[in-house]
Design a protein around this nucleic acid. Sequence first.
DNA 1: GTGGTCTAGACCACA
DNA 2: GTGGTCTAGACCACA
Lengths: 125, 125, 125, 125
Amino acid sequence: MKFNDLQPIYIQIMDYIKYLIIKGELKPLEKIPSVRDIASELKVNPNTVQRSYQELDREGVIFAQRGLGNFVTENPEIIDNLKNNKVDEILNIFIEEISKLGINREESIKLLNESWDKHEKSIRN
Amino acid sequence: MKFNDLQPIYIQIMDYIKYLIIKGELKPLEKIPSVRDIASELKVNPNTVQRSYQELDREGVIFAQRGLGNFVTENPEIIDNLKNNKVDEILNIFIEEISKLGINREESIKLLNESWDKHEKSIRN
Amino acid sequence: MKFNDLQPIYIQIMDYIKYLIIKGELKPLEKIPSVRDIASELKVNPNTVQRSYQELDREGVIFAQRGLGNFVTENPEIIDNLKNNKVDEILNIFIEEISKLGINREESIKLLNESWDKHEKSIRN
Amino acid sequence: MKFNDLQPIYIQIMDYIKYLIIKGELKPLEKIPSVRDIASELKVNPNTVQRSYQELDREGVIFAQRGLGNFVTENPEIIDNLKNNKVDEILNIFIEEISKLGINREESIKLLNESWDKHEKSIRN
DNA sequence: GTGGTCTAGACCACA
DNA sequence: GTGGTCTAGACCACA
């Protein structure tokens, strides 16, 4: 994982954990790596990871159990929300960027369909 | 304009100039701001801006005239190419990101249509 | 039992013993746990517990019998006093805190009645 | 201000700021002391104060303005909530403690009235 | 071992 | 000057 400097590292770690949960690589009630493990893996200070985990705890995405570790929430509603928010973000960025180039709704859908054609072809090969 | 640390600054400046040309804010044969002006505006070393302009010149996007400044190409093919490349980039990022979340072609189009609906409503108000 | 650092530990142990007597969990003439038992249970130095017991003895709340242990006083007046002092403390803290928020006598009684309503409802369920 | 060890320092600082707001000593939109000022006054590390302020910000009680300072919210609803929560806390502690001593609702109200009598007399003198 | 809090100190962003 | 982030390192609480 590489960090950029547009957002604080602790936010980027949060987004990464959320992303793993959305993709289902971290399942409900599953233990997530310890603060220290993540810190040494990402070469980041444990305090920074700790902060990410505490924010995620506050958002209800994970919960901490002292002496045991941090675990993914079992609340499906929260996980659905994570996914919906991420999808909305991707859609909005797309619409914003494509609009800035002067491309309208109809054209954007047409171009997207063509692009999916190419994408599916390249996967088949 | 803000820089990130994922790409060299001179590339980011190039992308910005290209973006202005695509949007039509810089028109064919129009003079673009001097290296020194851009440098002081972006608080960047003039050499960095100079490098961006040289690359853009090499790509045929702009051309330099000694003693006069840099000007946008009048070749419509190059400008079209700029736009197409940018559009392709946006489309590919969208498909890649939405696929990573396990959303397929059909669903992505459906979601995009819904998102356009919301977008158009919010603009009307 | 947890200790805080606002008062000496021996005072906190005294308060705890008094509290058990007030509630009737330690009855008149009943033997109270030995210094060593309390010390190991609370993970405290036996000298500290010893001091608590000596003070309680001095106050007449308990009395020591060499070779036998410590026993709760049978003097009902002393036990009543314990209770009255504790009750006064609770009342005074309440009045002090509620006054600091700018709430007067009338309002405090009204709020207390409402709070008792809620309390009794929550117990019934 | 003195800290105890029953709660983290940053929570105690939060409670203190909330208390000042409830009492009206810090008014809506008023600037609260800077992180560094509070830190040196309370002889606490600036990071600890920073954390308190950020939590209060997240709760909507104050808001930070980079380069300017932290300010009390102007949202009266949030301030009312602060007060109501504090009052509830005082009432609940009172009922819990007085119940533990075997005193019921009627008696507690009677005792409170008597205690208010004493309190008012002592103030008059 | 694992999370939680705190200090000391540095450096950045914003005004 | 003021808030925001991060590192290094210590020590505590819980299991």
